[in-house]
Structure formats: C-alpha cells, structure tokens
Computed example of a mutant assay.
Amino acid sequence: MGKPTRWVTETKPGHSQWYIDRFRRLAAEGADLAGEARLLDAMVPPGARILDAGCGTGRVAGALAARGHTVVGVDADPALIEAAGTDHPGPRWLVADLAELDLAAQGEPEPFDAAVVAGNVMAFVAPGTEGAVLSRIAAHVRPDGLVVVGFGTDRGYPLTDFDGDAVAAGLRLEHRFATWDLRPWRDDADFAVSVLRRPPNQEPTAPR
C-alpha cells in the first residue's frame, strides 16, 4: 500500500464499522441503493466485465452482479471488503490501493468494459494521488471502455483538477450530470457524475 488514504487519516476510529452498519441498516429498511448500478447497466452490454473501484461495502458491485455482469470490487479497506464479501457473494472482492492498482498481479489480467467510481471515492484517496488513481483505473479498461465517476464538488477535489487528471489519464469526457439519475449538469451543482471514455484506438496500458 502507498500513502494512507483520507478514509484513514480524516475519519475517526471505528468509522469503517459505522459505515458498514449504516448501509446494512439502509438495505434492511428497503432504501434504494442501486442507482449507480442502474446507470452502469444501461451503458454496457449484457454480461459486461465491470470494475467497481473503491467498492466500499459492495452495494454497487452487488447490484451489477445481480444484473448478470462479471464484477470485480476493489477497496483499500480490508474491513469493507470483508463486509462486501459477506453481504454480496456474487462479485470477486480484492484489497488494493487504487493509486497502485495492478489487478493482473491479483489474477485479473483481462481488461474491463467499464469502471465505476462511486460514493465520493475520489475525495477519500490519499492527497496528491488523484491523478495516479484515474490513470491506474483507466489502464484496466479496454479501448472504447467507460469510466464513470461521481463525487461531491465541495469535497476538496476541484472539478477543474479532476478534468485535467482525466485528460492526463487518457480519458475523454463524454457526458456530465448532476446526479446518478441523470439530472442536467449545472455549474453550481454540488455533485458531478462524469462519463469518461478511453479512445477506441488507444492501446491498453500495461500495469506498472
């Protein structure tokens, strides 16, 4: 693992268990936790191979697997990965630092049709690693594949910085929305869902 993430340095002890308990409670109450998965499902072909980068407790990856996709969920927090495996047995769950992501070394050499980065993941990675995170995710997506990223615009990672990091990672912005249910983007929106694509003529980058 590289530098400690903000998930570690900017939260209190016990935060991971609180987060696990929160989403288990929401699921038990019947809350709609599959909005991101519905959007991804509409963007990819049936039976797509999808990377859930920063998967947390697995709600998005689990919903995508239930829709027939092959999903690999990755998170730096072992407690969240353990909970994901318990609550959502369909996907494959791996502990990994997104800034150093090398899934071939963990038995997943095939590129993905799409990657989803939900739940403010980009606001919780280690400071200064945002560009590396996007580059490593992009390297695992096939040419013409999608990377769909959602995070709060007031969480310390300016959208202008994100756009620059996305370009440096070889990704092109195709669409931007204010919510996962596709409400129109406005410059004053406090959340952004960015649909990025690897150019179709771009060769896959070997993991470093």
Rank of each mutant, 00 (worst) to 15 (best):
V147E: 01
V44D: 11
D21M: 04
A27Q: 13
F151I: 09
T57M: 07
H175E: 15
V71T: 10
G62N: 01
D113Y: 09
D52G: 10
A189R: 07
L159F: 08
D113V: 05
V71D: 09
G35S: 11
R59P: 06
L26I: 00
D52R: 12
G56R: 02
T57E: 15
T129P: 11
G131T: 11
G2I: 03
Q17L: 12
D41Y: 02
P109H: 14
R197S: 14
A53L: 10
A79M: 09
L64G: 03
I137E: 00
L94Q: 14
P91C: 03
G85F: 01
H88V: 00
A48G: 14
N120M: 13
G152I: 06
W7D: 08
D154P: 01
R172Q: 14
L182A: 13
Y157G: 01
L173Q: 13
A37I: 10
H88N: 12
G68R: 06
M43F: 13
G119F: 13
G164M: 08
F162Q: 00
P111A: 06
I137Q: 02
V193C: 15
F177G: 05
A115I: 08
A192Q: 03
R49Y: 09
P200E: 03
A27R: 15
A189L: 07
A114Y: 06
M122V: 04
R186N: 10
A83N: 06
L33Q: 08
R155G: 03
V141F: 10
I81F: 02
G145S: 05
F151V: 06
Q202V: 15
V74M: 05
R172M: 05
N201F: 08
G47V: 02
I20G: 05
T205R: 15
F23V: 01
W93P: 01
G152T: 04
D32C: 00
A168L: 13
G68D: 07
A27I: 04
A168V: 11
A168S: 15
G30P: 06
A192K: 04
V167P: 00
G128P: 04
L64E: 07
G164D: 14
D144C: 09
V60E: 01
D181H: 07
D154I: 12
M1H: 15
A37K: 10
R142H: 07
G150Q: 09
E29L: 14
H140P: 05
H140Q: 11
L103K: 05
D161F: 08
F23K: 11
L171Q: 04
A104E: 15
D87I: 03
V141N: 09
A34G: 12
H88I: 01
D32F: 00
T11F: 13
W185P: 08
D102E: 14
E174W: 11
R155V: 12
A96S: 09
I20C: 05
W18P: 00
P204V: 06
D165G: 00
D32V: 14
T57K: 02
I81A: 06
R183F: 12
A84W: 04
R186H: 13
T5Q: 12
R198F: 06
C55S: 15
G170N: 06
F177S: 09
V116M: 07
P109Y: 10
P158T: 04
L39N: 10
A84T: 00
V193D: 01
T179N: 04
P111E: 08
F151Y: 15
D161S: 14
A37F: 07
G30S: 09
T70G: 14
V125A: 08
G56V: 03
